[in-house]
């Protein structure tokens, strides 16, 4: 675990990919554990969950393991993947219908609007990452990972002011991309933004 995180800090994406399932399983194990001990209406706080997962994994594997920041980064990535896979499955089941559809609708974990937003943001972020990877990280940590600006600043080793500026710009950029790729979803914005937005793609 520690070695994997050390590798990742040197930009080793493969190490990150190996770490993700470990983090994910720990998150799920904890979620199960909490749900069994709590009243049904209890809602888990994401940050608390990730923190707890970190403490457990760090403790199990290496007592001197101090790299909390990277753990949060991996957790955000794991959650992004979980959301995207779920959203895709939800969309294909909506199209396909059948017995599984009922099962999914009963769960109702995610609305059609949320499904679309998650997939749109995911796709646009992949593009943003090729242009400005730090901004893509800021969005991933905040939108998918649920971290606040101070926590993001700690993870990325930048100031909170920079986090805020990155967020403001990335949000406007993603919103513009959204209007281009799904003009039907935002007629008002398209009317005003349309031609200007087209220019963004060039």
């Amino acid at each position: 675990m520690t070695q994997l995180l050390a590798d990742w800090s040197h930009g080793d994406d493969a190490a990150l990919a190996e770490l993700t399932p470990l983090v994910y399983e720990e998150l799920r194990r904890l979620a199960h554990h909490f749900m069994e001990g709590q009243r049904p209406e209890h809602t888990l706080q994401t940050t608390a969950l990730v923190n707890e997962a970190y403490l457990r994994l760090a403790d199990q594997t290496h007592p001197s393991f101090t790299n909390r920041s990277h753990f949060f980064a991996v957790a955000a990535q794991a959650m992004r993947q979980i959301l995207v896979n779920y959203a895709k499955a939800s969309q294909s089941q909506k199209r396909g219908g059948g017995a599984l559809k009922v099962e999914l609708d009963e769960a109702a974990l995610i609305s059609p609007e949320q499904t679309t937003e998650i997939l749109d943001v995911h796709e646009a972020l992949e593009r943003l990452a090729t242009l400005d990877s730090r901004k893509a990280h800021v969005v991933e940590l905040k939108y998918f990972g649920g971290l606040n600006h101070d926590e993001i600043a700690e993870v990325l080793k930048i100031s909170t002011v920079t986090v805020r500026r990155d967020w403001v710009f990335a949000k406007a950029w993603l919103y513009t991309m959204n209007c281009i790729t799904r003009p039907d979803r935002n007629d008002e914005a398209r009317m005003t933004n349309g031609n200007q937005a087209e220019a963004m793609n060039r």
Binding site: A31, H32, L44, M79, A107, E117, V121, G146, K171, A197
Partner: peptide
């Protein structure tokens, strides 16, 4: 275009999807 988006984006992506991820994990 970006300035116009900045004006209009409002609550767009301001609500983190992490809560949904947690529920998916729980389930």
């Amino acid at each position: 275009a970006l300035l116009a988006s900045h004006q209009r984006a409002g609550s767009f992506i301001e609500t983190s999807a992490a809560g949904i991820a947690t529920r998916i994990i729980e389930n």
